[in-house]
Each structure stands twice: as structure tokens, then as C-alpha cells.
């Protein structure tokens, strides 16, 4: 018994945790730099189409978004299963687009307004009809710079 008791005292020394904050900080900085905080809560389901000739959207502060897709499962009772438009945090109708464009323009400085881009995030299963209606509304209010949001194709 006494022999076993003596052996027990020779445990491995504790690992020093002094460098743990440094490791965590490195991770933290990585996430801080690479992060973009989500713009809105999606009320619609969007799976973007893929395309090869895509460019990065520059100047995020000058981009406004229009989402088109089927409503989320929880909202389907209220809005049905047909594709709908989402502006900001709400599901909207076609004739609210000019209003939305004006509101977005009012948020920017006067000289930045011509540089504004409207990014269309559209679900790939949507029919062209509603997309065209949105485009016609944008043309009406002279919001002509648009961007069709797409992903890089997954390479096998």
C-alpha cells in the first residue's frame, strides 16, 4: 500500500495555459476581419444560381438588396407558396419598390446616388415573370445599375 501511495504523487505537471489568450486572440482577429454581419433576416428561401463570369461587388455601402423567392415555411400560411419580394425586413409588393428605392437613395449622400447598385438575390427556381416585373419597376425610377447575385459553380 505504502509503495502505491508514493507512486501516485508523481503525476504529470499541469500544462501551462499562459499562451491560451494569444491563440484565442489570433482566432478572434481572423473572424473579425473576415466577418460580414448579416444584412437582414431572410423571410424568403433563396438558393442562388451559379455562374462563371461573376465579379465581386465593390463598395458594400452603396449596395441595396432586393430578395425574391418562396416564403419561409413558417410564413407560407400567410403569404402562400408563390415567390414573393422581400425589401428590408418585410415581404413587400411590386408597387412598394419605387418607394424603397427612394428611401435607399435618401440614406446615401447626394453624390453617391448615381453609383448605387441594386443587388437582386433571386432563388434559382423562380420564374422570370416576377423578376422582369421588378426590373421594370427599377427602370421606372431610374435605378439602372443592377447585379444578379450568383455563386461560383462547385468544381468536381
Amino acid at each position: 500500500m505504502a509503495v502505491i501511495g508514493q507512486k501516485k504523487e508523481r503525476t504529470t505537471p499541469a500544462i501551462s495555459t499562459a499562451s491560451l489568450p494569444d491563440v484565442i486572440f489570433i482566432l478572434l482577429f481572423f473572424f473579425m476581419v473576415s466577418t460580414t454581419i448579416k444584412e437582414v433576416d431572410y423571410k424568403v428561401i433563396i438558393h442562388l444560381p451559379d455562374a462563371t463570369q461573376i465579379k465581386k461587388l465593390e463598395n458594400k455601402s452603396l449596395v441595396s438588396y432586393i430578395y425574391i423567392g418562396k416564403p419561409q415555411k413558417a410564413l407560407q400560411a400567410k403569404y402562400g407558396t408563390k415567390p414573393v419580394i422581400q425589401l428590408n425586413d418585410q415581404i413587400a409588393t411590386l408597387d412598394q419598390i419605387p418607394q424603397y428605392v427612394e428611401a435607399e437613395r435618401a440614406k446615401r449622400r447626394q453624390e453617391d446616388v448615381p453609383k448605387m447598385t441594386f443587388s437582386l438575390k433571386v432563388d434559382k427556381e423562380t420564374n422570370m415573370g416576377i423578376v422582369t416585373d421588378v426590373k421594370q419597376q427599377l427602370r421606372k425610377v431610374q435605378a439602372l445599375k443592377i447585379n444578379y447575385s450568383a455563386r461560383k459553380p462547385y468544381k468536381k
Binding site: F31, S34, T35, T36, I37, K38, A51, Q53, I54, K55, K56, L57, K60, V63, T117, S119, K135, L138, R139, A143, L144, K145, I146, N147, Y148, S149, A150, R151, K152
Partner: peptide, 15 residues
């Protein structure tokens, strides 16, 4: 809060 995706797409000008 992070979403890693960068916004990319085809930029076009409407008439």
C-alpha cells in the same frame, strides 16, 4: 454573427 460569403454576381445595366 459571421457569414463568410462575399457578394458576387453578374453586374448589368438596365436600359
Amino acid at each position: 454573427t459571421t457569414t463568410m460569403s462575399v457578394d458576387k454576381g453578374i453586374t448589368r445595366k438596365l436600359p
